[in-house]
Amino acid sequence: MMTPAAILDTSLQGKRIPFTQAPIIDFAPAESGTRAGKLEVAKHLRDACINAGFMYVKNSGVSPSLAESTFSWARRFLKETTPEQKQAVSMAVHGHNRGYFTIGEENLDPTSQAAGDLKEGYNIGRELAPDDPDRNTPLCGTNAWPEDFPGFREAMLTYFDAMNDLSRRMIRIFALSLDMPEDYFDKMVDRPLATMRFLHYPPQEGVITEEQLGCGAHTDFGCFTFLAQDGVGGLQARNVAGEWIEIPSRTDCFVMNIGDMFQRWTNDLYISTLHRVINTSEKDRYSLPFFFDPNADAYIEALPTCVTPERPAHYAPTTGLKHIMERLSAGYGFDIVNGGDKKEDM
């Protein structure tokens, strides 16, 4: 049966522009290994982060076929597992910000939305050995894997590892873009609070308002995000003029955007851009965001190259874990660390 065409509130309509007007970062020169190539990419990255905060990354070294395979596993999980299997790996039960969440359980814009986001998904973090001390750190812990669903764990971790490797290469280019030593961030991202998700957005029907969107307007919380889209579209970002701009899906590129922590780290030099998802395609939409955040104990203060007498530090120092916890816990009605009812002191 055909899904009824959606009707958008006029304030929710994105301005359609050719994707060539969005910054495109070619990562290939950085992958050459030469300093000149890395500095070339760093220059373009700096311009994009200052002026947009949202960009495409091409020639990342991660094969598009890997994202396609991961999308396939995401669809299989949602279609082939039983409600009991999903409940057993529910984030609300498992904790650690890992596992499955259903439609409405996450609300990324609680100031406007009443019903929560119209999406479901699954969170995966670093797979830790039994004796890894980080297992006792909030938001680390163990991943939640469904029973009797062979191949899923291996597929998810393969994608996670590929994106984690890309992110650790990319943050070195970020360091160069900020006139810092290339390895400046290395010791702060060797045990990252990185999270991979797959998300499913059913098509929205009827009159759409801010009461419920596929994903409510928000900025990302951490350093930066890589996003693979499945070709359906629906992502919008708000530019500095306050206009909502469509970010068309490109299967040959990742979308990358800056998060709040990097805006804080760069003393507001780099922009953490407000964005949202509205799926009016009459199709199911899937996406694969990978959030790259620093170690839990990473000390976050304004970088020396981003502070001057005329531009003093805008934020008090914090840690990677404290910053993420403050932002993340506000979006759920349950305790994201331990599972179960939400704790008042979070």
Rank of each mutant, 00 (worst) to 15 (best):
Q21D: 06
T209L: 03
A5Y: 10
D131H: 09
V232R: 03
I103R: 13
D345E: 10
G233P: 05
E326R: 03
G320M: 09
F290S: 09
M170P: 00
L118T: 11
L193K: 07
D183M: 04
D341M: 15
P248A: 01
S90T: 02
A114Q: 13
G333L: 14
N239C: 01
F160C: 00
D134W: 04
D117K: 02
E246P: 09
S272E: 07
F290Q: 12
A237P: 05
D293Y: 05
K342C: 14
D284C: 14
K283W: 12
G121R: 03
K342R: 15
K283Y: 10
P130A: 00
H314K: 13
A36M: 12
M2Y: 15
P138C: 03
Q21M: 06
I17H: 15
L8F: 06
P64T: 11
I171R: 07
E246Q: 09
A52D: 12
F54W: 12
G33R: 08
A155P: 08
S281K: 11
P317S: 00
F174P: 11
L193G: 04
E147D: 10
R98M: 12
E210V: 12
L39F: 12
A241C: 10
P150T: 06
I171E: 07
D134K: 07
K58H: 12
V337F: 14
K15Q: 13
D252G: 07
N143G: 00
V189S: 07
V189R: 05
K43H: 03
F19M: 15
K343D: 11
V337T: 14
F198N: 00
M55Y: 08
E282W: 10
P146H: 02
R250S: 10
I7D: 08
N136H: 14
P289T: 07
Q21H: 07
A298F: 02
H275W: 12
K43D: 03
I7M: 05
E31R: 13
R172S: 00
H323N: 02
M325H: 05
V232K: 03
G14A: 10
D9N: 12
G340F: 05
T34C: 09
I258D: 00
D131V: 09
F27N: 10
F101G: 04
V62H: 01
E80V: 06
Q204F: 05
D186H: 02
E80G: 08
T251E: 12
E211K: 13
A296S: 14
D190F: 06
L321C: 04
D190T: 07
H314R: 13
L321R: 04
I208N: 02
D268W: 11
R285H: 01
L45P: 15
T81K: 05
A175K: 03
A194P: 01
K86H: 02
F149E: 06
A115C: 14
E326K: 03
S63Q: 10
D179A: 08
M55V: 10
